[in-house]
């Protein structure tokens, strides 16, 4: 794997807590991750696991009056969490671009496509109007939208879902950011379009030598695109490693459960695996101990750590808690 010095985004023990009726509840707790150039890191987990919150924390988009953020996010030599709003605005869009889930609502319905792509250039470059216009056309071309001249004068509702997502990508890459955060970029799209958008993202990443944080709930998307994978449950990373490690040798009970609940070839006569119980709400989340323990009640308490930490199992492959060691599903003898 890439050496320790090469990483350019280093997330260290980041926690994000939201204020609910006067008390703070952590949606993300003690997450540490490294992202390198030319690398796609997937953060995978189900709704409510904190993956989107982590993304918006990196972007600094939370209302400081309602959130408490701890830890360190080191990006190109500075800690993003110590920057003020003006300093952050120089990074957002310029050094870090973001791609959102629903391309229709992510675009301003009343502004022309061209103007929305150009907006980032207005704030981060000293280009002339003509240069910006040329760059916008170049971007529209790059993301594979036919008839760029016409499209830049159109409004979001006049485009198809796939084309809109390409526009959102064009916005994110306008200033050639070093890092792109893609939050469920293909969830709202048809499968064939999904494949095209993922391929496009990979191509752009290679061209710009950017790093990508890909946030998704779709294990198939992860297997197709990611280099590194972090699996999140209840605000914590429970397992991380290379895509190969995670898919070929999943260790944490949650990762194994998720993979097992996917419909497989030749699974038609069997019931799918169902994880017991459900994800607790923010307020009811256990504060200590293994957070996945209530979902695998047959595992004795002695198997869990009192304060679960990440354990390196093989180079680059880490698992939280000790409960993975002797873990068996109930139907396995």
């Amino acid at each position: 794997m890439a050496d320790e010095e090469n990483h350019f985004l280093k997330i260290e023990d980041v926690s994000t807590a939201f204020k609910i009726q006067g008390k703070y509840y952590p949606a993300v707790s003690d997450v540490s991750l490294d992202i390198h150039n030319d690398e796609i890191v997937a953060i995978v987990g189900e709704s409510g696991c904190g993956k989107s919150t982590l993304a918006t924390t990196i972007m600094g988009l939370h209302d400081p009056a309602e959130t408490k953020i701890g830890g360190k996010i080191e990006f190109e030599g500075q800690d993003l969490l110590t920057l003020n709003e003006d300093q952050m605005n120089k990074i957002r869009g310029a050094k870090i671009g973001m791609i959102f889930q629903d391309p229709l609502s992510a675009l301003n319905p009343l502004k022309r496509i061209g103007d929305q792509i150009q907006e980032g250039l207005d704030y981060h470059t000293k280009m002339t109007e003509a240069e910006k216009k040329a760059r916008v056309l170049e971007l529209v071309n790059q993301v594979g939208i036919p008839h760029p001249e016409r499209v830049i004068r159109q409004f979001p509702h006049e485009l198809s879902g796939g084309m809109r997502q390409r526009v959102v990508i064009a916005i994110a890459i306008a200033c050639k950011p070093d890092l792109m955060i893609a939050d469920e970029p293909t969830t709202a799209l048809d499968v064939t379009i999904q494949a095209q958008i993922l391929d496009l993202l990979k191509d752009i990443q290679k061209e710009n030598h950017a790093g990508i944080i890909l946030i998704t709930h779709d294990l198939g998307v992860v297997a197709e695109t990611a280099d590194e994978v972090a699996v999140m449950y209840a605000g914590q990373v429970v397992e991380k490693g290379s895509a190969k490690q995670i898919f070929d040798n999943p260790l944490h009970p949650y990762t194994r459960s998720l993979l097992r609940s996917m419909p497989q070839k030749d699974s038609e006569n069997d019931d799918l695996y169902v994880i017991e119980g459900s994800v607790p709400s923010l307020q009811k989340m256990p504060q200590d101990g293994c957070k996945f323990a209530p979902r695998i009640p047959w595992v004795p308490a002695s198997e869990h750590e009192a304060h679960p930490t990440m354990h390196e199992v093989e180079p680059g492959h880490r698992v939280r808690c000790t409960c993975y060691k002797n873990f068996k599903f109930q139907d396995e003898a």
């Binding site: 064939t192 999904q194 494949a195 095209q196 391929d199 779709d218 294990l219 297997a223 197709e224 190969k244």
Partner: peptide, 26 residues
């Protein structure tokens, strides 16, 4: 065939082949 080729598979090893196949079908 196009729909089938677009389903992401959970095998990391064959992802490049899958992409080539997908692009050929497309």
């Amino acid at each position: 065939k196009r729909l089938l080729s677009a389903i992401p598979e959970t095998s990391v090893e064959h992802r490049e082949e899958a992409r080539e196949h997908r692009e050929a079908v497309e």
